[in-house]
Simulated scan of single mutants.
Amino acid sequence: MGMKDKFQDQAEQWQQKAKGKMGQAEEQAKERGQQRGQRRDEEPERTRPQDEPDYDQDYQV
């Protein structure tokens, strides 16, 4: 095995590791997205407290 083959094999191994890690990262991102979606479904909608003024309305001076 020559030096060229040795370095080529090493580069291929690094490529395979990187592809594997990318696949894992994609799966984890999908899982996190699904978990966030589930949490949104479980949380009630946030409402404005009754004593808080409504700043969206125009004020008359």
Rank of each mutant, 00 (worst) to 15 (best):
P44S: 02
R40F: 00
Q16N: 08
A18E: 10
E12W: 01
R48A: 02
K30A: 01
E52A: 07
R46C: 05
K21D: 15
K19Y: 03
W14A: 15
K6R: 12
E43R: 15
Q50S: 14
F7D: 06
M22D: 12
D5V: 01
W14N: 13
E45N: 07
E52R: 08
K21M: 15
E42K: 08
D54C: 02
R39F: 10
K6N: 07
P53N: 00
D51G: 03
Q16A: 13
G20M: 03
K6P: 01
Q35T: 01
G2S: 07
A29E: 08
D58H: 06
P53E: 02
Q15M: 06
K17L: 14
Q34G: 03
G37K: 03
Q50L: 13
D41W: 10
E45P: 10
R40E: 03
E43I: 09
K30R: 12
Q24S: 13
K4E: 09
K6I: 14
Q10G: 10
E27M: 06
D51C: 00
P44A: 01
E42G: 02
Q34Y: 04
M3K: 11
M22N: 11
Y59T: 15
E26Q: 15
P49D: 03
M1V: 11
R32W: 04
A29T: 04
P53D: 00
G37L: 02
M22T: 11
Q10R: 15
K21F: 13
D56G: 12
E26G: 05
D56C: 03
G20Y: 00
Q34C: 00
D58V: 10
Q15H: 08
G33E: 04
E26D: 09
E43P: 02
A29W: 05
A11D: 05
G20P: 00
Q13Y: 00
Q16S: 12
K21C: 10
G37R: 01
Q16F: 02
E12N: 13
G23D: 05
R40L: 06
Q50G: 09
Q24L: 11
Q57M: 08
R39G: 00
M1L: 10
E43A: 09
E27V: 02
R36K: 10
M1C: 08
Q35H: 04
Q16K: 11
M22F: 13
D58I: 09
Q60A: 13
T47V: 12
G37N: 02
E45Y: 08
E43D: 04
K21S: 14
Q28N: 11
Q28S: 06
D58L: 09
R39Y: 08
A11G: 06
E31I: 04
K17D: 13
V61W: 14
D5E: 09
T47M: 06
V61F: 15
D41K: 15
M1K: 14
Q50W: 14
